[in-house]
Design a protein around this nucleic acid. Sequence first.
DNA 1: ATGTCACAGCCACTGTGA
Length: 257
Amino acid sequence: MRIATFNVNGINGRLPLLLHWLASAEPDVVCLQELKSPDDRFPAAALRDAGYGAIWHGQKAWNGVAILARGSDPVETRRGLPGDPNDSHSRYIEAAVAGVLVGCLYLPNGNPAPGAKFDYKLRWFDRLADYAATLLDLEIPVVLAGDLNVMPTDLDVYAPARWRDDALFRPEVRAAYRRLVDQGWTDALRTLHPDERIYTFWKYFRNAFARDAGLRIDHLLLSPSVADRLVSASVDRRARGWEKASDHAPVWIDLAD
DNA sequence: ATGTCACAGCCACTGTGA
């Protein structure tokens, strides 16, 4: 079973690229972020034609998350992260697919820091940690996947010194990520590749991808029973090099049946 | 500070978020 996460950076503008990638990677489950599409413009028919059922939580222009399932319809279990009824951003959706509870998330960027956006990011992280703890208590297979907008360690940044004060790398944010993982989650990529430089995002600026000036900010966190099934984990860098690429590459894991 | 995208509002380009 292959589960992927992919920040598409606009699902309508990049639909041909997404369809091409789905056909070549054949993931069973896909978590998408940054749809940048209202719900009524989500390309459900094209995805259905490509063999994927979908649920989505969009909004105009910004944010937006979706879960795709190959050959089936994801069974939605939640939309929106608990803990703040006034949070209007579409950043969390969750579904049961083939015996796994899949939470797809787009954590706030948080720049500029300090400031209101950074405070919102930290609050969102706290809400995520509170909710993630309740998922672990269920003792069922759970995958939390998405763009967490945090580089966990220096190994995850091409130039750590330049990112110290950025909202994606400040100590408070790394500590929040560490507290979340320490609840009992397994960071799939880092667990299988403890010493490797792995990036999932390269800015559009300054030829970053060609220079491999990247960041690892897209993560798959596994509950214990899923971690026991983890076979492989990798970044599909091909898609970052394609025409009209997103600034993120897809990341996937393979689980034993 | 900068760099490059996508999208909204609105028909040419600026503003915004990343």
